[in-house]
């Protein structure tokens, strides 16, 4: 059965989309079929990492949620060659980058029930092993829904006081929704920070398993979201950390 992994953060700029795309790649490199759903409809971006730009004729998630496009038409295969060679597949359900469409979505909203149904419909149609939901930061109707339907919530935070507080709020909500599994990922750890100290602090603060502590990386900054770190700088500690997180999720959830 398809597992839903919700990659979420309380605040923006945590590297959620980067993690979602690379996590999908790590899972697909093991021969799995994975979809990434960009539910950050107000500020989409994960498509950039797959170097996919929706053309005028390409349907996006908006066309399903606010229109009549079937969900299958909004699902685009973006599997890199390296992943294809390993027998995996990555599908992307991008959000629209058209400013009028984004404005319409903010103005009119949409039913989160349609989002729920879309995720499970595409999981069945594409025979997926995992769906990775890249969410909008903070708490709103769609992040509450995707948290509620997830088999595992992957909370991403930076080692920053505002993130520590916000993450606690998001985890409190997840607890109320009785999310079956959660992992905490500390991303963008500055080089001079003591990783062990951060590890201890987050484990004591939240009492949920730590998925990964990922370094702030010059190489990732150089990539500037123009590609997947896992494929471009596979030996980098950031990429290795994501691979280890993927293995942890395979062992415990998938």
């Amino acid at each position: 059965m398809t597992k839903i992994l919700c990659v979420h953060s309380f605040r923006g700029g945590t590297g959620k989309s980067n993690l979602s795309a690379n996590l999908a790649t790590a899972l697909a490199m093991t021969g799995r079929r994975v979809a990434v759903v960009d539910t950050d409809l107000a500020s989409p971006g994960v498509h950039v990492l797959f170097q996919f730009t929706p053309g005028p004729d390409d349907a996006t998630l908006n066309d399903h949620l606010q229109g009549s496009a079937p969900i299958e038409a909004c699902c685009h295969e973006v599997t890199p060659d390296e992943v294809k060679r390993k027998g995996g597949h990555i599908f992307l359900l991008p959000a629209s980058m058209d400013s009028d469409r984004i404005a319409r979505l903010l103005r009119e909203g949409y039913s989160v029930e349609a989002l729920n149904d879309a995720i499970f419909e595409i999981a069945e149609l594409k025979d997926l092993d995992a769906v990775i939901v890249d969410t909008h930061p903070g708490i709103n109707e769609e992040t509450l829904l995707t948290t509620a339907i997830s088999d595992c919530l992957v909370m991403v935070m930076r080692p920053d006081s505002q993130d520590y507080l916000g993450t606690a709020v998001a985890l409190e909500v997840a607890q109320r929704l009785e999310v079956p599994n959660a992992r905490l990922v500390v991303n963008k750890l500055p080089r001079h920070f003591d990783a062990e100290q951060v590890r201890n602090r987050v484990q004591q603060s939240y009492g949920i398993p730590l998925g990964a502590v990922l370094p702030l990386s010059d190489e990732l900054l150089d990539l500037a979201s123009g590609g997947l770190a896992l494929l471009e700088v596979g030996d980098h500690p950031w990429s290795k950390g994501v691979e280890a997180l993927a293995q942890q999720l395979i062992d415990d959830i998938l």
Binding site: V112, E141, E142, L144, L145, A148, V173, R176, L177, E178
Partner: peptide
């Protein structure tokens, strides 16, 4: 019902 309401409902 909204998700906001669902989260606030009791009993668990």
């Amino acid at each position: 019902l909204s998700m906001g309401l669902l989260v606030s409902l009791d009993p668990p």
